[in-house]
């Protein structure tokens, strides 16, 4: 494997989607290549930064409306 190919396999690697043989070749390459090690680390870091976008406060007005909708659903007629 060469770097140009290895970078395209990184998501498959992180997802555990590589065959056993490809996984071994991938890990062999990474072990001896600083550039690909850094790239893999960048992708991992990117993924974790993206995960931070999940935290977003619900605007108070929207939350109040939704809770009120929930209460009328709860007290409303059920099919």
């Amino acid at each position: 494997m060469i770097c140009r190919e290895v970078v395209e396999l990184m998501t498959d690697y992180l997802d555990g989607a590589l065959s056993q043989e490809d996984r071994a070749r991938f890990e062999d390459h990474i072990a001896g290549c600083n550039g690909c090690t850094a790239y893999l680390e960048q992708l991992r870091r990117t993924r974790s930064v993206i995960g931070r976008l999940a935290a977003e406060p619900v605007p108070a007005g929207l939350e109040a409306e939704l809770l009120s909708a929930f209460r009328s659903w709860r007290s409303g007629p059920r099919p």
Partner: peptide, 25 residues
């Protein structure tokens, strides 16, 4: 598409990094 996701100019003729990514650690 299967087009490269890393600028091909960053690799040399043998497909090895020419301008490797920075170490973010």
């Amino acid at each position: 598409s299967s087009a490269p996701t890393v600028d091909p100019r960053r690799f040399g003729s043998e497909g090895k990094w020419r301008t490797p990514p920075d170490d973010w650690s």
